[in-house]
Write a protein that binds this DNA or RNA. Structure first.
Lengths: 365, 365
DNA sequence: TTGAAAGCGCTAACAG
DNA sequence: CTGTTAGCGCTTTCAA
C-alpha cells in the first residue's frame, strides 16, 4: 500500500477507503454517500438506470467508478427473495460428454442472467444426495439433475423442491414411468436409453451377427449404460441371437477396452462376432488392441461404440457409434427452464434425437 | 397436492406447511416453533450441537427432520460476513485438462466446507473480466484464476480483492515477474511454460534434429501455448537449429493435426524432421495422418505432444509428451488456500513438477 | 444453557 | 423522480 498502484475502481488510498467495513467491501451506502443520494436511489439506478434523473445518474456513475462497488449478491437475493442460481448435478465433469452439456446450459442461461452452480456426483447416488443438500442451501431457482435414478432421500428433496415451485429437470434420460412404481415425476430432457440399446442390437443383427457381446461400463452406478445393455441383450435374444454381457474393468477406459478385447476373441465357440460398448473410449481401446493383435475389424469382430467421441472417427477403421445430443441437452434444458421460470409454468419434457452412425468398424458384411 | 406422497422431510400436508413463506421454504423460525425454542437455539445447535442441552437437542433434531429444513446460505453468509465460496475461473471445462484441476480443487476444498463457483472464460480475457465481475458479487473467500495474463480491468479487480484480504491465486503458471512491467503480484501455482518449451526443444535437439517446427494452438488467447512455442523456438535457434512456427487451424483438434501434417511433410528443403505441438490432440491428429500417409514416425518426422492425454500412449507409435500436474495443481491450490484462509497469511506459491515422457514418436535416432 | 437486541447489505412497498 | 420504512433469514454480541 506504499506505492500508488493504479487501481481506478477502488484506489485504496482514496477517500472511499475509510468508509469500508471490516471485510473491506464497498457497500451501497458508501456509493450513495459519495453520490450525495440515498442507497435506494443507487440500488434503483443499478437495476433500472432509466428511472433516475440524468444528472443524478451521472453522479452515481461517478461514485460507482470511484468506489469500485461490487453488488453483494447474498444481500440482494436475500432481500428480493428471488434466486438467479440454477443448481446442476452431473456425474462427472472430466468426461467431455457432460462438460458439453454444462456448456450448453451455461450458454443458454448466462445470457438470461442466471448463474450455474455445478457439482459432480462421481456417479454415486449417495454423493448426489449429499451435493443436493448443499446446493439446496443456495435456494436455487431451478434444479437440474442427471438421470432418473436417485436415492430415496434425494427423491424427497427433489419432490419437496418441486412442490414448492422450483422446477426440477432430469437430463440425459427420457423414460416412461414404470407402471408399478409410484414416484414423483420430474421433467425429463434427454433420450431413451432402451431405444438406443435396441437400435445398437438391431444394427448388428441386420449385419448378420448372431453371437453378440455387450461391454458394460465399469462404473457400478452408470445406470444408463446398464439400461442400454439390458435393452441390447433383450432385443438380440428376442431375435434369436446370443448375448454375453461383460463388465469392463475399472481404470483407464482405453486400457479396459484393450483388456476386454482378449476375452472377446477368446470366447466361444460359438465365437463372438460383434460387440457393442458402453462408451467409445472402451470401444476404441478394444479397436486399438484388435489392430495390434491383427484381429480383423469388422471381419472377425465388429465393434460398435456409444457417444461418438472425437477420436472415434479418427481411428482406422473408423468406429461406428451413437451420436448424442450432448450440447442440445444443455441448451434445450436452458430453454425449457427459462420458459418455466418466466411464465411460472412447469418445464416441458423433451425427447432429443440421437443417431447411430455407421462407419468402418461395423461396415458391410 | 391431492394424494399424500411420502415426503418425510416436509410433507406438504403437514402442519408445517402453513407456516411457510411465499417461496415455500422452511425457515429457522419455523423449526424453532416446532421445537419449542427460539431461532437462535436452533441456529446454535446447527453450528455447535454440543452446546445445547441434550433434550433440547433431541427436540430440535425432531423438528428439523419433520420440517425438512434447509439452511439459507444467502442469509447465513450475509449475517456472518464470512464466505465459504471459492470462485474459480478456467479457460474451459470441456477440456479434460482443466476438468481434472477443478476436480482436484473440489477434492481439497469440499472437505473443508468450501463450495466452488466455477466459470469458464473460453480462453478470452474479455470474458474472464466479465465472469470475474459476476463472481465477485458472491464475495468469495478466495479467487482462483488461470494464468498470469489478464485484462487491465480484471487486473484491477484482482488487485483490489487482494488488497482487501481475499487470496488470489493464478494457476497453471509460474513465472518470474517481467522486469519492466510493474504489476501486482499474485500467488502462482503451476509451472513455467518457458522451461517446458525449452525442454521440448532440447529433447528434439538431443535426438539430432536440426529442422524443427512448433505447431501452436489455434486459440488466439492460449498464451501459455504461445509462450511454450516462443521458448521452444528461442532454444532451438540458440542451438543453431531452424524452427518454423505454424498455427493449427481451429475446429476439431484431431482434424487440425491431420491437416497440419501435410504442411509439415511438404515443407523444405530442408525438410522438417521433428515437430512439437501445443497439445496432444493436435499431435495425435498429425500422428494418425502420418500413419495413413505412411510417413515414418519418428524416422521421417518425429512428433512431440504436450499434456499426455490418455489416447497418446495408446497410438502406434506411442506419443512422446509432457506429463502435467493437472490434478496436483488443484489439490495444491486447495491446500495453499486453506492454509491462507485459516491463518490469515498469504497463499504460498508453488512450482509443480512436470515430466517429458519419451515414447515411440521421438524414439532413438 | 438459552434468549433479546441489533444488524449484515440490499430491496419491496409505499409515500412524497 | 427520490426518500422512508420495514424486513429478507440468519448470526453476532451481550445479558439472563
Amino acid at each position: 500500500m506504499t506505492q500508488p498502484l493504479p487501481l481506478p475502481p477502488a484506489d485504496p488510498a482514496s477517500p472511499a477507503r475509510q468508509a469500508r467495513r471490516g471485510h473491506g467491501r464497498v457497500t451501497l451506502k458508501e456509493v450513495a454517500l459519495a453520490a450525495g443520494v440515498t442507497p435506494i436511489t443507487v440500488s434503483r439506478f443499478l437495476r433500472e438506470p432509466a428511472v433516475v434523473a440524468a444528472e443524478t445518474a451521472q453522479r452515481i456513475r461517478a461514485a460507482l467508478a470511484q468506489t469500485g462497488y461490487v453488488p453483494n449478491k447474498q444481500a440482494g437475493l436475500l432481500a428480493s427473495g428471488v434466486s438467479n442460481v440454477v443448481a446442476v448435478l452431473l456425474p462427472n465433469l472430466a468426461n467431455s460428454i457432460f462438460a458439453e452439456t454444462a456448456q450448453g446450459l451455461s450458454d443458454g442461461l448466462q445470457a438470461a442472467g442466471f448463474e450455474l452452480l455445478i457439482a459432480s456426483t462421481g456417479y454415486s447416488l449417495a454423493r448426489e444426495e449429499h451435493q443436493l443438500r448443499a446446493l439446496l442451501g443456495w435456494h436455487p431457482a431451478a434444479l437440474v439433475v442427471t438421470g432418473r435414478r436417485h436415492s430415496p432421500g434425494a427423491l424427497q428433496l427433489l419432490a419437496h423442491a418441486q412442490a414448492c415451485g422450483t422446477p426440477v429437470i432430469e437430463i440425459w434420460d427420457h423414460h416412461p414411468p414404470e407402471p408399478g412404481q409410484r414416484r414423483a415425476s420430474f421433467t425429463q430432457i434427454g433420450f431413451n436409453h432402451d431405444e438406443v440399446g435396441r437400435a445398437m442390437a438391431e444394427h448388428l443383427l441386420r449385419a448378420g451377427h448372431r453371437v453378440l457381446a455387450y461391454v458394460d461400463s465399469g462404473i457400478a452406478e452408470d445406470y444408463r449404460a446398464h439400461e442400454r445393455g439390458m435393452a441390447f441383450a433383450a432385443a438380440a435374444q428376442a431375435a434369436g441371437a446370443s448375448v454375453t454381457v461383460v463388465r469392463s474393468p475399472s481404470g483407464d477406459a482405453f486400457d479396459a477396452g484393450r483388456q476386454v478385447l482378449g476375452d472377446l476373441v477368446r470366447a466361444g465357440p460359438p465365437a463372438i462376432t460383434a460387440a457393442a460398448f458402453a462408451n467409445d473410449h472402451i470401444a476404441c481401446g478394444a479397436m486399438l488392441e484388435a489392430v495390434r493383435r491383427k484381429v480383423d475389424v469388422p471381419g472377425r469382430l465388429a465393434l460398435l461404440g456409444f457417444g461418438d467421441f472425437a477420436i472415434s472417427r479418427q481411428l482406422t477403421p473408423s468406429m461406428s457409434s451413437v451420436q448424442l445430443p450432448r450440447h442440445a441437452i444443455g441448451t434445450e434444458t436452458a430453454r425449457s427452464l427459462l420458459d418455466a421460470l418466466k411464465h411460472g409454468v412447469p418445464a416441458v419434457p423433451a425427447c432429443l434425437p440421437w443417431a447411430l452412425v455407421v462407419r468402418g468398424s461395423t461396415a458391410g458384411r
